[in-house]
């Protein structure tokens, strides 16, 4: 019975991811027909993220049970959110929704809960704190027996990963624009907590479970190095955004300098 319910929830998740991708591509093509520029790389990134979610929901990864679980978590909590965020879905929605929908989305973005959730420490704590609760508390063992709780955990892992990635990348218009330093600190802090948790898992399974040592070791190393890959990608996004902003600042300074600087002969005339 669990299996059946699991299967139905997985199909639902895959269906949601798929319809998200279809909606994205439709909205992007509508934007292009209107004459807006919207890079096809964004479509590619978003659909790849959605495909990753579909694969994580439907395909059982190879390896021991805990390693397979970890691969799914990496896909839903880190890799897919990054690919989705790179597609700038909120920007696309704001540009392509009709006036009513646009206003509604803006109201949601400006609402108090979103304002609290998109604070850097809150997003980081929800993401990594949730992982610590899952793997160092009794939650993992409890979710093992209750499919609805397991589904809830998966939803949280995805939602918290998406929130954290959006806040660190700051590509979409968020209610507050946290600075580069705060986002960098959150990234390094979360990366460290992730690495420490991976090493602890290497030594001891989540309480109440009895995974084999080789399975545990493989899962921990997958978590550690997989997390590294996504962290490097996130650091590259933060760095390149800073580089672009610094270039714009430089261009502005030069324009201002060119305007303010009087011609060489002017000083003699005074």
């Amino acid at each position: 019975m669990h299996q059946q319910q699991d299967g139905r929830l997985a199909l639902l998740a895959a269906g949601l991811a798929l319809s998200g991708a279809v909606a994205y591509v439709l909205a992007a093509s509508r934007l292009r027909r209107r004459g807006d520029r919207w890079s096809p790389l964004r479509d590619l990134s978003f659909t790849a993220g959605a495909a990753g979610l579909v694969a994580a929901a439907l395909v059982a990864p190879p390896g021991g049970p805990f390693t397979a679980h970890m691969a799914q978590h990496l896909a839903t909590g880190m890799a897919a959110p990054l690919l989705l965020v790179l597609g700038r879905p909120v920007t696309l929605a704001l540009r392509s929704l009709p006036a009513g929908g646009h206003r509604a989305l803006l109201a949601v973005l400006r609402s108090r809960p979103i304002g609290v959730l998109t604070r850097v420490p809150v997003a980081a704590l929800l993401d990594v704190g949730g992982l610590w609760l899952l793997y160092r508390g009794p939650l993992f063992a409890a979710a093992h027996e209750r499919p609805w709780l397991a589904a809830l955990v998966q939803v949280h892992v995805f939602a918290a990963g998406l929130l954290f990635t959006s806040v660190v990348c700051a590509l979409d218009p968020l209610p507050r624009r946290p600075g580069t330093v705060a986002r960098s600190a959150a990234l390094v802090g979360a990366g460290a907590a992730h690495a420490v948790l991976a090493k602890l898992l290497y030594a001891a399974p989540p309480p109440g479970t009895g995974f084999g040592a080789p399975d545990l070791a493989a899962a921990a190393e997958l978590m550690y190095y997989g997390g590294d890959l996504v962290e490097i990608a996130l650091a590259a996004v933060v760095g390149l955004r800073w580089y672009a902003a610094s270039g714009r600042r430089l261009a502005r300074e030069r324009r201002r300098g060119a305007r303010a600087e009087p011609p060489a002969s002017a000083s003699y005339g005074q």
């Binding site: 990234l187 990366g191 650091a235």
Partner: peptide, 8 residues
Amino acid sequence: GLFHAFGW
């Protein structure tokens, strides 16, 4: 862990 994350 901190230095590992900071290194990348």
